[in-house]
Design a protein around this nucleic acid. Structure first.
Lengths: 192, 192
DNA sequence: GATTTACACTAGCGCTTGCTTGGTTGACCC
DNA sequence: GGGTCAACCAAGCAAGCGCTAGTGTAAATC
């Protein structure tokens, strides 16, 4: 029972678990389904993870870390004006759906299935991601690029973006960059 | 086995089921939990519903019908200019969280758990609700009140609003009317 | 007064669930 | 060449699952 290692094998199993969690939902995914997807027997699964909950925690941890990493890189790479930063964050969010869709979707929609200890541990990661957003939105508000209440605007924007997992097809015609542009255009006002 | 009646008793049971589905999720809610919440034994439950699936369908049907009714009434009661209609729709959406939160939340987040026949039957209701939104957004676009792609704007707005179930407290300080105002202010542009 | 209906009960069947146990395999190591 | 170790397997346990069968009963209907 390798409780808390991050062997490459475990990473790969986590990736496959994410896929099933998205397809079926966490509760409907049985350990036997997971094992079959991984090409092992159900008992062997518990050599890598303490229990089913820990698999979910591993998936969500990876999804959130990935999103955080992409967002930070995007902010580092873009111009420092509020409009560019807003665009960069939106694009980064959509790009996570491209590079690691499954884990990100699980992080969004199966959060409630985490038990209390796992939730406590992972909420720091999540807070860090949301903090990035609030900072960018604060700057945009201060620059008069968008208008409204700080709290509400960030909630509305996060909602619009998180909802994209229900309809956005990353292999479709619109690139994350284009889509981010549309969102920013909708939000911002021409005469700052 | 009253397969398709809508007795007051069944209505009340449906309401209680919605509460549990929100708290625990559909898959984690057992028929025994449902029965206990309803004050009966688990076997008696199947006098009112054919199976567990039918309980979910009943909850979602009621939630969507409620949202549709409130939205239609709001459109009938408001001024006919695009801004008023947009505001009315947003307010109506938030008011459903006030009058029938549980059923509405279940309709949003447990849709995938419906089996194929139930989904086919209920998707008409859902389409009717979304059609109202698209009509209102079309008018707002035509009037130059908001800008952007028709498809994308409606998805973004629906996302922002549907996300409210995760943070909005209808008993809190902000009324649905105020919140709808903030959303419209964020979206619309002063000089049409 | 007899029959039907609506609603509830008890008891449990057949199956699946997450997880455990005890043991095997093959690669690597001093 | 004995020891270690991660990785896996076969078998199955205890609990819980959705659901059914058969029965009781009070009120409504004939």
């Amino acid at each position: 029972m390798n409780v808390m290692n991050d062997s490459p094998r475990r990473k790969e199993l986590t990736r496959q678990a994410a896929q099933l969690f998205v397809q079926e939902g966490f509760d409907r995914t049985t350990v036997r389904m997971l094992a079959q997807e991984m090409g092992i027997k159900s008992g062997s699964l518990f050599h890598h993870f303490r229990d089913k909950q820990e698999i979910l925690a591993a998936v969500i941890e990876e999804g959130t870390e990935n999103a955080l990493g992409i967002a930070r890189a995007a902010l580092d790479d873009c111009d420092s004006d509020p409009a560019s930063r807003l665009h960069a964050m939106a694009r980064a969010h959509l790009e996570t759906l491209l590079t690691d869709r499954n884990a990100h979707v699980v992080a969004l929609y199966e959060w409630r299935r985490l038990d209390a200890p796992a939730r406590a541990h992972l909420s720091h990661l999540r807070d860090a991601y949301e903090a990035l957003w609030e900072e960018v939105i604060d700057d945009a508000l201060a620059a008069g690029l968008i208008r409204g209440d700080r709290f509400l605007v960030s909630r509305f924007v996060m909602g619009a973006l998180n909802w994209t997992v229900r309809w956005y097809d990353p292999d479709g015609e619109r690139t994350p960059d284009e889509l981010a542009g549309e969102l920013v255009a909708m939000l911002t006002h021409p005469a700052g």
